[in-house]
Nucleic acid binder design. Structure first.
Lengths: 213, 213
DNA sequence: GACTAAATGGAACAACCTTCCCGTATTGCG
DNA sequence: CGCAATACGGGAAGGTTGTTCCATTTAGTC
């Protein structure tokens, strides 16, 4: 095709190109805060960023492409997991970080936009999946260490525990649209931990009764 | 004023008006299955439904209005909760029903569309919240009965239990975009039940340790 | 510091969304 | 069965957004 076997912006990523990218992503977030994903247009993003429409089309192609790139950018800003020495406080740090992120004007709007975009765009869906699976993986070690310390049963699936912490918070945000409070985070930690201690997160086991078989 | 103090379609809801509404909502679902919320246009909905686009604009106003009405329609189609006599199987019925709905082509696409629409439209957000809070309320009695039977601790918050069952499934659907399987439903039931039995859903209590402090 | 290729920006064009106007068809009622 | 009000349908106009072409500017290199 027309493209020199590479995507525009990757051959000479320094100087102006980098400034343009930063300005466009910044403008994208601003637009998302104000209008949400449905109201995001290439036109206004370009105008707000002070760049030509052509540039936005060439480098991002569409509005889902914009939010996907935004999510990829966030994915690269790795936030190190906690290590407070106890699983309960570690998970609490995690849950409260999620609550804080979702309630942050810019971040919250961005997350919701990418989630919305992922419902109709494969690129956005991939960016979303990549971001969260990476975050989950980063935090899994917190659970693994707790297992090593004897705080949780051997075989506990760390990834599933981290998912279980976050799930109720996102459920409130996106589905029931209830406020995502610190209290909800505490509940999530307490309930997940209770289930984990009962062995409900042990791989392959479906513990439903009071005593393990 | 222009409007006779009522919204079009509410004064004479019989006959053609009802047929038009049914055709439009049907076409909306079809379009959602094919293009998602982002690709939903008033134009194509009208064409597909075989009605004038003026009518669609007059009665629904926008695409979020369309999906909001769709959700309201689904909310009125109440599905009675289970009563198998045991909390575990009751919750399993609930979880599997959610899995089935989310994996259904039409329903799944509709849910995702409304969730996406709710991120930028108050009307859709309200329809979504109304739908789910009603469903949660319908299923809460299942937990209350279990408490009465002595299967779960006194004071267990039924609404929160039902939320906890569904949350991981929606999390997989919308956030990590992993397949929503029957296995995931089983996990959710087992973990929620383990936490509930440990008293983690008792109102006001934050049970985190083995023994209450 | 000059050269080459990459990246950008402005303008033009097409497509789409949304509204307005008015004639027509249908409903609910007497 | 006839009347009056309601709801619908079609087409055209105005505005916004999507998409592409080509000259100009800039980054990276010798």
């Amino acid at each position: 095709m027309e493209q020199p076997s590479r995507i525009a912006g990757t051959v000479r990523p320094g100087g102006r190109t980098a400034r343009v990218r930063a300005a466009v992503l910044e403008a994208t977030q601003d637009e998302l805060v104000e209008h949400g994903f449905h109201g995001l247009t290439m036109d206004q993003v370009a105008a707000r960023a002070g760049v030509g429409k052509t540039t936005v089309y060439r480098r991002w192609g569409s509005t889902p492409g914009l939010v996907a790139d935004l999510m990829t950018e966030l994915a690269n800003q790795s936030s190190p997991h906690a290590d407070t020495g106890g699983i309960e406080s570690d998970l609490r740090v995690n849950a409260l970080a999620v609550v804080e992120a979702l309630n942050d004007g810019r971040l919250g709007a961005t997350f919701q936009a990418v989630i919305a975009a992922a419902t109709c765009d494969e690129q956005a869906s991939l960016a979303l999946r990549t971001f969260y699976l990476r975050r989950i993986e980063e935090w899994t070690s917190v659970v693994d260490l707790a297992v090593a310390r004897g705080e949780l049963p051997v075989g506990t699936d760390g990834g599933e525990v981290i998912r279980a912490i976050a799930a109720p918070l996102y459920y409130r945000l996106m589905i029931t649209r209830e406020p995502v409070t610190a209290e909800a985070a505490e509940w999530s930690v307490a309930r997940t931990l209770a289930a984990a201690r009962a062995g409900a997160f042990v791989t392959g086991a479906l513990v439903t009764g009071g005593a393990p078989g």
